[in-house]
Design a protein around this nucleic acid. Structure first.
Length: 323
DNA sequence: ATGGTTTTTACTGCGTC
DNA sequence: GACGCGGTAAAAACCAT
């Protein structure tokens, strides 16, 4: 047992808390009146001003590897490996050494070596799986938060979770923030479900900025081969219409306008949101339900100028069809 | 990086209440 | 006079190359 490789770990957390306790006692150096500091590593109490050693051979506050009674056994603060926040599990999970040696340093038989190899494999698998679970948990929480802030229905959250899970499985996360990918997933899911939210709306509830969301979104879509067709202007109509308290008739007219615009190919290259907003505005005129341009621009987050430009085109196109 | 397209910003004039 | 609306020019944003 003498040559067993036992390492003593310095426990950072313990020494910190001990030091604080000592300082709070306000001990003062008898020589110069300076503050006393406890150096746990050397077991000394020294004056931080003049360096006078007040006390030597303190009790070792370092890790204690043996427990002599039940009380000490419960004193968890003095046992265990040091922890780190750099790893998701604080480095507390099991590690199987890579040397094929037993505790005495003897080599293992080939049968034992194979067994250890298998154990290492499985241990690693469970460990990374566990880390993914944590990752997922956090991401799903974020997705949920953002989805409810945007009033997105359950099925969109489901889709977003599925997309995120896939991204995780395909190892798309490294180099990207969880938050970013979660947001991108939600954005994609909303579009897929036919209840799109504009990038601006998404940005307003996310902790990530617009550029990163857009970048991550493109990346995720490409890597996962998600097929997402350009947002259909019509899918914005119901939301705008209800935000403005418009009648079903107006909503129908707006759809109608967009349809004829599509047939005429007016809509290519223009922002879908702008088209939808213009259609809603035009429809409100056609049905004599007063809504101002600024109100529409408000709910659609589009400029009035754009609405004006679009709705002229829409009316022209519709006249062409009707006539 | 660049150039072309679309959207936004800011401003002005006109008519109505 | 405030408001809604239309138009314009220049700036900004966006997108493909």
């Amino acid at each position: 047992m003498s040559d067993t490789n036992v390492r003593r770990f310095q426990r950072d957390q313990d020494t910190e808390s001990e030091t604080q306790e000592e300082e709070s006692d306000e001990l003062v150096c008898p020589e110069c009146g300076g503050k006393l500091a406890t150096d746990t590593e050397h077991g000394e109490t020294v004056c931080s001003e003049c360096g006078l050693v007040i006390e030597e051979d303190n009790i070792d506050r370092g890790p204690e590897w043996r427990a002599f009674d039940a009380a000490e056994k419960d004193e968890k603060s003095r046992v265990g490996a040091p922890t780190t926040n750099m790893m998701h599990d604080k480095g507390l999970s099991t590690n199987i050494g890579w040397q094929d040696k037993d505790a005495y340093g003897n080599s293992l038989s080939s049968k034992q070596r194979q067994k250890m190899q298998r154990l290492r494999t499985w241990n690693e698998r469970f460990r990374t799986r566990d880390s993914k679970e944590r990752n997922l948990k956090q991401a799903l929480g974020e997705i949920d938060r953002m989805a409810s802030a945007l009033g997105l229905p359950e099925n969109v959250r489901e889709t977003a979770s599925v997309i995120y899970r896939r991204a995780l499985d395909e190892n798309l996360l490294p180099g990207r923030s969880i938050e970013g990918v979660a947001t991108a997933s939600l954005y994609a899911a909303a579009r897929q479900a036919g209840t799109p939210r504009s990038l601006d709306e998404i940005t307003s509830v996310s902790r990530v900025d617009k550029d990163e969301i857009a970048r991550t979104y493109r990346y995720v879509v490409r890597e996962l081969n998600l097929e997402i067709q350009p947002a259909d202007p019509e899918s914005y109509v119901p939301r705008f219409a209800s935000d403005l308290d418009l009648s079903d008739e107006a909503e129908r007219r707006a759809r109608q306008l967009l349809k004829s615009a599509k047939e005429k190919g007016i809509h290519s290259g223009k922002s879908p949101v702008g088209l939808a907003a213009a259609a809603v505005y035009a429809a409100s005129l056609l049905t004599n339900e007063k809504v101002t341009q600024s109100e529409v621009s408000e709910v659609a987050n589009i400029s009035e100028v754009t609405i004006r430009n679009r709705y002229h085109e829409l009316l022209e196109a519709d006249d062409g069809i009707a006539a």
